[in-house]
């Protein structure tokens, strides 16, 4: 392994990490602003122009708060919980292809940390690991509300992972590949997978709402029943990590949805741009388009949160097991028949 490779990947990982954190930071701000606008209010506007420094103020507040560890908690796991939540949230971006290959000094630099051939499975693994942060934190708090919330989070994640996996199977029937780079490359120009898999996309989207514990499926942190949910006992930056991990998760799920269904860095008219612009500029413009799509999805996450009331627990389970899983299976069958017919 030559040193250039290491440096190149190190830079890419650092940039991705920084981007994830900054987007998560400003998602908290955007969430409050979107909520405010949807409710005919103004939102935070005191810290800096238009309240743009609000995330910094919140961060400082989080760091300055007293850190309280409950006496009867499992100290070690209590500390591991938020760290694990944060770790799982951050490593998801490693397999996402952020753009086509750049050419710097005659060398091709892929805008992807690693193109493992089972990228989709990796994403799945990381997303399902994410629930461990919630579970461990909830259990280690030694508080009945936290425990109830952890149990809810675990069962919710397991239930929705099934439907999510089934919706992905239909997608894989179409793409014939598990590599995310390959999947994105196939969606050239406007051939986005959402056109071939509309039902699969809706199932996947609903499931990713549930997986990220976002409204209307935010039962693990439902204040009216469980105080703060799994982070009831957390304070200071440990609480900050949990809240932060939720926003990074939202960013990662938006990214995955764009990658799998909305063409990643592809956009109509990209051939024209590639022919007329400098090659690197065209690639970076594709990445820019990618981020715009991601921001649209993050906005959609927030828009939904401030529209739909929280599901009841039995409704959640009914929707998952009796609604989405049969639908996903039907989707697989339809896709299979369609692919079989296409080959004739």
């Amino acid at each position: 392994m030559d040193i250039n490779f290491v440096i190149e990947k190190f830079i890419l990982v650092t940039i991705l990490f920084a981007i994830s954190l900054v987007i998560a930071m400003y998602s908290t701000y955007a969430e409050r602003k979107v909520a405010a606008f949807l409710q005919d209010r103004l939102g935070p506007d005191r810290a800096g122009p238009f309240g743009i420094l609000q995330p910094l103020a919140d961060g400082v507040k989080m760091f300055m708060k007293e850190e309280i560890v409950p006496a009867t908690s499992n100290k070690w796991l209590f500390m591991v919980g938020p760290g694990l939540a944060m770790l799982c949230a951050c490593i998801g971006t490693a397999v996402i292809p952020w753009g086509q290959d750049l050419t710097i000094g005659g060398k091709t630099v892929p805008l992807q940390v690693t193109d493992i051939n089972v990228g989709v499975l990796y994403i799945f693994g990381v997303v399902s690991l994410g629930v461990y942060g919630v579970m461990i934190g909830g259990w280690a708090s030694n508080n009945k509300y936290s425990l109830l919330s952890a149990i809810r989070a675990a069962s919710q994640n397991i239930s929705y992972e099934v439907a999510m996996g089934l919706s992905i199977i239909a997608l894989l029937l179409v793409t014939n590949s598990l590599s995310l780079k390959e999947i994105v490359a196939q969606q050239h120009s406007w051939h986005w997978n959402v056109i071939y898999q509309p039902l699969g996309f809706i199932i996947f989207m609903v499931c990713s709402f549930a997986e990220t514990n976002r409204a209307p499926f935010d039962l693990p942190e439902c204040e009216t029943e469980l105080i703060g949910g799994y982070h009831t006992e957390y304070s200071s930056m440990k609480l900050g990590f949990y809240l932060f991990a939720e926003y990074i998760n939202m960013f990662v799920s938006s990214t995955v949805m764009v990658t799998l269904y909305f063409g990643g860095y592809n956009y109509p008219g990209m051939d024209y741009i590639a022919a007329h612009w400098a090659p690197n500029a065209a690639v970076l413009f594709g990445t820019f388009i990618f981020f715009m799509k991601i921001f649209m999805f993050i906005f959609f996450f927030m828009w939904v949160r401030w529209t739909i009331p929280r599901f009841r627990y039995d409704q959640l389970m009914n929707l998952g097991w009796k609604g989405l899983i049969p639908l996903a299976i039907v989707n697989i069958i339809i896709t299979g028949i369609w692919i079989a017919l296409r080959q004739f």
């Binding site: 949807l38 103004l42 828009w303």
Partner: peptide
């Protein structure tokens, strides 16, 4: 739930562009 959700999303979006009362 989807038709009702879409309707609700429309309602909230119509408020997005209203003048805020603050």
């Amino acid at each position: 739930y989807l038709p009702a959700i879409v309707k609700g999303l429309g309602t909230t979006m119509s408020h997005f562009f209203k003048k805020s009362a603050t």
